[in-house]
Each structure stands twice: as structure tokens, then as C-alpha cells.
Design a protein around this nucleic acid. Structure first.
Lengths: 218, 218
DNA sequence: TATAAAAGTTAGATTAATCTAACAATTGAA
DNA sequence: TTCAATTGTTAGATTAATCTAACTTTTATA
């Protein structure tokens, strides 16, 4: 059995591994907002428990077991988000914080029940895939909106930032999953983009925002 | 904000105070399965935080604030039990263990939502009253079945032991909340009782069991 | 009422998870 | 290629929550 602290390290390791290729003590430290020496000694413990491969001054790599456990925590998180959203009437901006706590609950039956009641969903309310019960996760290949140009039309598939503030911002802009976005123009200086949603007004989105909107061309 | 450990002390203090009148370090220690010196120093900390009145060699008494906070944790526990039972299809024997973990979640909205979805229930699946949002709890005056005699008829109102094993035992005996029980005879030696449920067969219940079945005469 | 048993307390150790300060290794830029 | 910045590590302190051992106070009984 792993503590909530350990589970948070596992989750952060998995998400960093999915973003980049090498995961360093420094990056993990920043992501968790935990100082490097603490992270360093935790990684030594993880190596002894067989959760990571870790040698001094080398990057950290999750073992297969570490990956599986991390994905099972993510599974609990995302099933919870979906349950709160679909079955309890929470907004997509409210569910992350609650799921952050619920993911540490040790009660397999609770999450199996959510899964069943939800009809075995494949994605959470932010479009992120839900790992299966074996800890297997298939990553859809969406592209950030920032990679597209004037004239392109795309569909919003997922949001790579589940923070309440960001999602409230998207609510304001009427951006939801499935929304069709047409790119009117792109500013080469700062990468900001002017978009149209359906026949609505033109909206400006900063690079910070477009990097977090995962889309597919239509 | 209080830790899960502190919340468990609060809950135990409240439930002991409702059972007896004076709460001692020793009893709290037994209830929590935590050694006396640990409990002793925690009670000193609680006294400083204004959760209890505590002087050396004297009984422990929850302050009004301590009582309120304890009741709010019980409220989360019981709302969760009811939600799991009514809305997710769990059996009454399965919900206590899960609620024991969920009661520590810091997300007022989650429990407000459960309350609303459930239609503001007054009792949990074991017949225990749910404290209101201010931490006020009205205790119904049920009597243990063990206090009745041959010839009496009573209705099962609550179970004062939510452990999975005890509730499984009651399932086997077809005892549920609302069940009408007629007492055929009572053994003076060990207090065991022979009962009839409706026109079913006669069943024997030991004193251990009848002490945990809270009833009202009919 | 004397004293043994029970309950309560104090002192000090342990473990997990964190920190800061100081030092070492690696990396990258001049 | 050198050396300064960045990254990583070690050592040692801290806090919360627990423990055991030893001692004290209260309680209950012979």
C-alpha cells in the first residue's frame, strides 16, 4: 500500500514522462512543488521498491510496475471526475480539485461502481483518456491549437490543463469539448491567434491558451 | 484545517460522549486502538486548540466547537453512506468502510450535492441520524432489543454497529430496518432471545446481537 | 486504611515527509 | 576548454503521529 504522498510522486512521474522523454529530479521537484533533496531521497526509496530505475545524476524512469500503479491512480482520478460531472451535476471546472483527493481512496469497488454506472467511459470531462483496469492507457494523438495556422479549422478534443481558473476562462469564451474552431489569423510575433466559433464573434487567444487546447483538424 | 488523524480523535470523542458520560484517556485509547501516551499528548494539543477541556487526571470533555466539528465529520460520513447505498447500489454492509475514508475529504460542495441529490435525508442506511450543516444532531431515543422481554413486539429502527461482519449476519437473519420483531422468549441465564419475524421461523439472537439492535415498541 | 491494580503522565525513540545549508557533478556559454 | 550556472546529492534539522519504558496518581479492594 502506498501513501498519498507516494501516489502523488507516481502520478507526477507518469505525467512528466508523457510530456517529455527524460524526467529529472529538478522537473519532478518543480511539478510537485517539493524541494529537490526531498524528491531525491524519495526516488531512492522508489528505486528500492521497484517503482523507478534511478542512478545518481541520471534521469528517472518509471518501471513497468511504477507505470501501472501510476495509471491506476489516474484511472481513479478520471473516473471520479466523470462521475462528478455526469452523475452529480458538477461543472468541468469543479471536478479536478475533488478528484485530487478522491484518487487516494482505497476502495476498488467504489471505482468499479462508478465505471459501471457511467457505462465504462473512455474519456474524462476534459477529454483525457481513462486508463483501463489493468493500468493500460492509450494516448490519442491530438495537437495543440498553437500548431495550426490561419485558415485551418479544427475541433476541440481535450484540455491539457484542468485548473479551475483556466476552465472558467474557457467557459467565458464558450469553448467546450467538440467545439469547432476556425482560425482567422495568427500573430507571428507572440503566436496569439484570432478564432471564430461557429458564426460567433472573433475572439483572440494567447499562445498560453492555444498551447493548452488539444485539437484535431476537420 | 485538521488532519485525518485529528478528525478521527474528534469523531471518537463524540461517539464516546454519546454512549457514556465521562470520556477517559483510557477509553479513547481503546476505541482508537492508539496507545495512551499518544492519546494523552493529542488531548493536550486539542485543549490548546480549544477542541476539548482537559486537565490532568480528569475526564475529557469536548468544547462546543469540538462537538460541532466532530458532528460535521459524522455528517460527511453518513451522507456518504446514504449516497453509496441509495444512489450507487451498495449494500448497507459495504458503505461504512468507504465512508470512513471519504469523511476526510475537504470539499463542502461534494457533500452539499450528495445531500441535495438524496433529498436531504435525516438518517443513514443504518438508521443513524445525519447531523445538519451546522453540526447539530438530534439523537432519537431508541432502546436496545436486549431491554425487552418475552411477549413484546418491536420495530427495528437502527443498528449501533456498522461493521461489515455484523451487517452480513443480519442479512442472513433477514433483519432490516423497519422489520417487526416479536419476542417469543428470553433466556435469563445469558440474555439470549428467541424471536419471530412476521410468520417466519423462530430465530435465536445472542445478547451480543440484541444489544446492537436499536428498536421501538409497537 | 493500606496497598495492589488500573489509569494517567513523562521522557525519549522512531518513522515518514518535509525542509535548509553546504557541497559535488554536469552542462553550457564565452 | 574553462568556469559559472544549473542540477543533483549529502548531512542534518523539523514536525506530526506514533511507540515503549518508567514513573505517578487515582481507584478500588482486601
Amino acid at each position: 500500500m502506498y501513501s498519498a504522498a507516494e501516489e502523488n510522486y507516481l502520478k507526477a512521474l507518469l505525467s512528466l514522462a508523457n510530456e517529455q522523454h527524460e524526467v529529472s529530479v529538478n522537473e519532478l521537484s518543480k511539478r510537485l512543488e517539493i524541494k529537490m533533496p526531498t524528491v531525491n531521497s524519495m526516488m531512492k526509496k522508489f528505486a528500492e521498491k521497484g517503482l523507478v530505475h534511478f542512478e545518481s545524476y541520471k534521469p528517472i524512469r518509471l518501471t513497468a510496475e511504477g507505470k501501472r500503479l501510476a495509471a491506476l491512480i489516474v484511472r481513479k482520478h478520471r473516473l471520479t471526475e466523470m462521475f462528478l460531472y455526469e452523475k452529480m451535476g458538477f461543472g468541468w471546472e469543479e471536478v479536478h480539485e475533488i478528484a485530487e483527493q478522491m484518487e487516494h481512496i482505497q476502495a476498488p469497488k467504489l471505482f468499479e461502481k462508478m465505471d459501471e454506472i457511467l457505462g465504462f467511459p473512455k474519456f474524462d470531462p476534459h477529454g483525457s483518456p481513462i486508463p483501463d483496469a489493468h493500468g493500460l492507457l492509450e494516448t490519442p494523438d491530438y495537437t495543440p491549437l498553437s500548431g495550426f495556422n490561419a485558415g485551418d479549422s479544427v475541433k476541440l478534443m481535450a484540455i491539457s490543463d484542468s485548473s479551475e481558473s483556466f476552465l472558467r476562462f474557457l467557459n467565458q469564451k464558450h469553448l467546450q469539448l467538440g467545439t469547432l474552431i476556425h482560425i482567422k489569423s495568427k500573430e507571428t510575433y507572440d503566436g496569439s491567434i484570432r478564432i471564430c466559433i461557429g458564426d460567433g464573434p472573433v475572439e483572440m487567444l494567447s499562445r498560453h491558451v492555444t498551447e493548452r487546447l488539444m485539437v484535431l483538424p476537420v
